[in-house]
Structure formats: C-alpha cells, structure tokens
Amino acid sequence: MDDVNMAGREEAGAAETPATTSAIPQEELDRLTDDIIAALKTVYDPEIPVDIYELGLIYKVDISDDRDVVVDMTLTAPGCPVAGTMPVMVADAIRSVEGIGDVHVNMTFDPPWDPSRMSDEARVALNMF
C-alpha cells in the first residue's frame, strides 16, 4: 500500500511523498491523492467551521495497488457527538473520487488530537493566531 501521510504535511494540502513503490502510475497516484484531499475537505466537524483535513484530523491515508483506501483519523475529542457518523461521512466522501475501490476508515485517539495539528488556514478561520 502507498502511504500518504496527511498529518506530516508541510502546509495544508501538501501530502507527503508515498513511502513505497506503487503499481499505480505516479501521475494517477498524484491525481488520486489530490482528489482524496479535495474530498476530505468537503467534510466538516459540525461544531467547528473548518474541514477535517485542515483541522488535522486525518492521520494517514493508504492507497493500495487495487485503489482501495484505508484512512486513519481522529476526532477533536473522544466524546465527540459525531464519533459514530464521522467515519461514514469520510468514507462516503472518498468513495466519490473516481477510480477508488473499497474505503475503510479507522478511528484512533493515539496520538490524541490537539490544536497544533491544524493548518494555518484553519487557525485563520478560527481566529487562533
């Protein structure tokens, strides 16, 4: 599987280079990565007016050679009221990307989310400078 580590981005929207060699041509892998990021940016935390990607809730996205996707993500707090629905929202958003196969979303709280994971764009939107 190719590992696109969204949490390790230098700036919002800049995914890390895949860690392993893929059977998917690089151009297609780049398109899938960009399209997945765009899809993730359509999902919002209902209590915070910032998308989950910019909030830093996406820890990792793996794209297999079969174009199946596995996402590791978190929430701003373990008791978040959307804990049951957020993984479904994320999976549905990613499934909208052309060429994607199965999608599985893993919820994790290790490491716990904190505001340092937010992009500069999210900080501006939340007036946190």
Rank of each mutant, 00 (worst) to 15 (best):
A23T: 10
V71D: 02
G8D: 10
P78D: 13
D62L: 01
A122Y: 14
D92R: 03
G8H: 07
D92I: 05
A14H: 10
D30Y: 00
P115R: 09
L55D: 07
A19S: 12
L40H: 05
Q26L: 09
N5F: 01
I37C: 14
D65P: 00
L55A: 05
T76G: 05
P78G: 06
D35G: 01
V70S: 12
W113S: 10
T33F: 09
S119T: 15
R67M: 12
G99W: 10
A125L: 14
V105W: 14
S116I: 03
A7D: 07
P111E: 04
E10W: 00
D30M: 02
K41N: 14
L55G: 02
D35V: 06
P111S: 12
P111N: 11
N127S: 05
A12T: 11
A7I: 07
R117G: 00
M89P: 03
D35T: 05
D2R: 04
P115V: 10
L32H: 11
V71L: 06
Q26I: 01
T20M: 05
A91R: 11
D110P: 11
Y44A: 13
T20V: 09
V88S: 11
E98H: 08
E47Q: 15
D34V: 01
P112G: 15
P78C: 06
D92W: 04
D34F: 06
D35W: 01
S22R: 03
P49K: 06
R31C: 07
G79V: 04
D34T: 07
R9E: 04
H104V: 10
A39L: 13
A19K: 10
R31W: 10
A39I: 00
V69T: 10
E27K: 08
V90M: 13
V97I: 15
G79E: 13
P25R: 08
M89G: 03
V97D: 13
P111F: 08
E16R: 00
L40W: 04
G8K: 06
V71N: 03
I63V: 15
S119N: 05
S96Q: 10
L126A: 09
E16G: 00
L29I: 06
P115M: 04
D2L: 05
M6C: 08
A12D: 12
A93E: 14
D120G: 10
P112Y: 04
F109K: 11
G56S: 05
V50W: 15
L75T: 10
V124P: 09
T74L: 03
Q26R: 13
V82P: 02
F129R: 15
E27L: 07
V103G: 04
N106Q: 09
I48M: 13
V61Y: 09
